[in-house]
Design a protein around this nucleic acid. Structure first.
Ligand code: FES
Ligand code: FES
Lengths: 141, 141
DNA sequence: TATATACCCGACTAAAATAGTCAAGTTTTA
DNA sequence: TAAAACTTGACTATTTTAGTCGGGTATATA
């Protein structure tokens, strides 16, 4: 079970954005330098964040990205959704047309994975971007 | 974020074992047929389960595997551990020699992933194999 | 005591997913 | 008008996953 870098970087970059955007847009170049993430990769990530209205862009010189909402209104779940990051613990796709045993009934572990999905997703639903901004001691910028 | 088949199959196979082992060992062939998992793959999985003392084997004709403990004493966490399945949400390895930003302090998201790890692992710690055996309606064998 | 059944175990591999990069733009401000 | 910065689709090397293969060993029972 592991998290992919795209989702991790997305959360990092947005936390950076939340921290450093006063009024002015923050350029990917700045985020790249501070968080040590490739600009080219960040571009890919921000494209998705923009399509999902989590950020908006300002083009041209002195441009960059700005959060579309307050950090306390941005759930981690939204960020993950924007990047197509899904929790996939089940072999079947919940709509049990064909269970993972090939039979037409739920497999013996189906409910367990279902509960796990719910457990993990509730974590993401309850965490906000603003939760990352408090207690800044002993952290990198 | 997804679970690999080895861990999923391990839980499935052990649940099968818990359900069908009366006194007699259960052969991988039987589990394979019931759960629709390749025998060759099951062998790999049971090797690890055996090394971790979750099951013991009986060789020869009419042989197979038997659980080493009662299902209510087998945590899902143990099963995952036996298969080297770890929850890896962090880029750094907790012992922050070098954080994921390359700096010598925790990155801005470190604590978030740490909490996520704890959240997920607590699920596995609290679930027992026996939890899969109740409420058998609407399930495959 | 032969033989079939079933566990044992390391090595190998095809396919999929991941983690990016590249190229060729467009837009805007100083 | 040049430089900074966003836009977008396509491409690719590497890693991980999900198995298979081959050649064993142990043991019950006919
Ligand atoms: S996980 Fe849904 S049928 Fe197995
Ligand atoms: S996750 Fe630990 S430093 Fe980033």
């Amino acid at each position: 079970m592991k998290l992919n870098t795209k989702s991790r970087y997305a959360v990092m970059a947005l936390a950076d954005l939340a921290k450093f955007s006063s009024q002015n847009p923050v350029s990917l170049r700045d985020i790249s330098l501070r968080q040590n993430i490739s600009i080219l990769y960040l571009e890919q990530i921000f494209l998705k964040l923009k399509k999902n209205f989590i950020v908006r862009s300002v083009r041209g010189v002195n441009g960059g990205y700005v959060l579309n909402k307050n950090p306390q209104d941005i759930k981690i779940a939204e960020i993950f959704l924007a990047l197509d990051e899904k929790v996939k613990t089940m072999a079947c796709k919940k709509d049990i047309k064909k269970s993972c045993t090939g039979k037409s009934v739920k497999c013996i572990t189906h409910n367990l994975w279902d509960e796990l999905d719910i457990h993990i997703n509730s974590f993401f639903e309850n965490k906000k971007l603003s939760d990352l901004l408090i207690k800044q001691q002993n952290r990198a910028q």
